[in-house]
């Protein structure tokens, strides 16, 4: 028993002693702005670049206008002309069992907990909730034939406040035509590729738009069908022409009860 105890005690002492020592590591350049202005000076001078290694004792030299970040011993050290030249100190990196045990003990006692140091707020919402949802709009492309107005279908509970052409900050007039449907005045928008920002309740949703005088052949494949069904086929197939299908169905509404019924069915029930 005594012998077994001394083996265990030896194991304990060896464990604690051996893990108390961490090892030196090098620094790594993790960001550099204008690498021509940043050099590393050690046994020989070399230009700084992303992933370049810097040894303890070496210097980072930054000329005015330059900037570099060195990741070293768990810290990001920003070096600019103001604190240049920066000499990398010699520090141990990594953790020890004793340190981890202390961290654990302190966290159990409530003195510290890395998890709690950073205030984290978690939104109990799926993506898109509390913001506008647009329907029948593709995130990566929408082909639309030029016309005076474009209708967009959205949540009936939201009111579209503005539609802005991205990049050009051109505001397009928008009017609600019925709950969940808004008409955007497109007369001032020439043919071209745009990103439209549709905004409601201080949140904007953007989608790309290819605004064309004449649509290409892909949208003509269903032209032999009655207009309501041709529009429905475009919507059903999704992809790039579903928004065009919505416009066609909207246009057919005035002369077709079928189109009216189909359009009403397409609006999501909330």
């Amino acid at each position: 028993m005594t012998r077994f105890g001394s083996i265990l005690l030896g194991g304990w002492l060896v464990t604690v002693a051996s893990v108390a020592v961490a090892r030196d590591a090098v620094g790594v350049i993790t960001a550099v702005a204008d690498s021509g202005l940043v050099t590393l000076r050690g046994a020989h001078e070399r230009p700084a670049s992303l992933f370049a290694v810097i040894q303890p004792g070496e210097q980072v030299v930054v000329a005015p206008g330059g900037h570099a970040t060195v990741r070293y011993a768990g810290e990001d050290i920003n070096v600019t002309a103001a604190n240049s030249p920066y000499r990398l100190p010699a520090e141990e990196t990594g953790d020890s069992i004793a340190g981890n045990m202390l961290d654990w003990a302190l966290s159990v006692l409530g003195s510290t907990d890395a998890e709690l140091e950073e205030p984290v707020a978690v939104a109990m919402a799926s993506r898109g909730f509390h913001s506008l949802s647009l329907y029948y709009v593709g995130p990566f492309g929408n082909y639309l034939q030029r016309r005076d107005h474009m209708v967009v279908i959205h949540d009936a509970s939201m009111v579209v406040e503005s539609v802005v052409v991205g990049g050009e900050l051109q505001v397009l007039p928008v009017v609600p035509v019925q709950p969940g449907v808004s008409a955007v005045d497109m007369r001032g928008l020439p043919e071209g590729d745009y990103v439209l920002h549709v905004c409601a309740a201080e949140r904007c949703l953007q989608f790309p738009l290819r605004w064309q005088e004449i649509l290409d052949e892909s949208s003509q494949a269903v032209e032999d069908l009655p207009p309501e069904l041709a529009a429905l086929a475009l919507i059903r197939d999704g992809d790039l022409y579903q928004l065009e299908g919505i416009q066609q169905l909207w246009g057919a509404r005035e002369n077709s009860e079928l189109a009216q019924a189909l359009f009403a069915r397409l609006q999501p029930v909330e």
């Binding site: 961490a22 030196d24 070293y72 011993a73 768990g74 520090e91 990196t93 990594g94 953790d95 890395a114």
Partner: peptide
Amino acid sequence: TPEDGYLP
């Protein structure tokens, strides 16, 4: 996020 960096 190790405080003293990752083990070498």
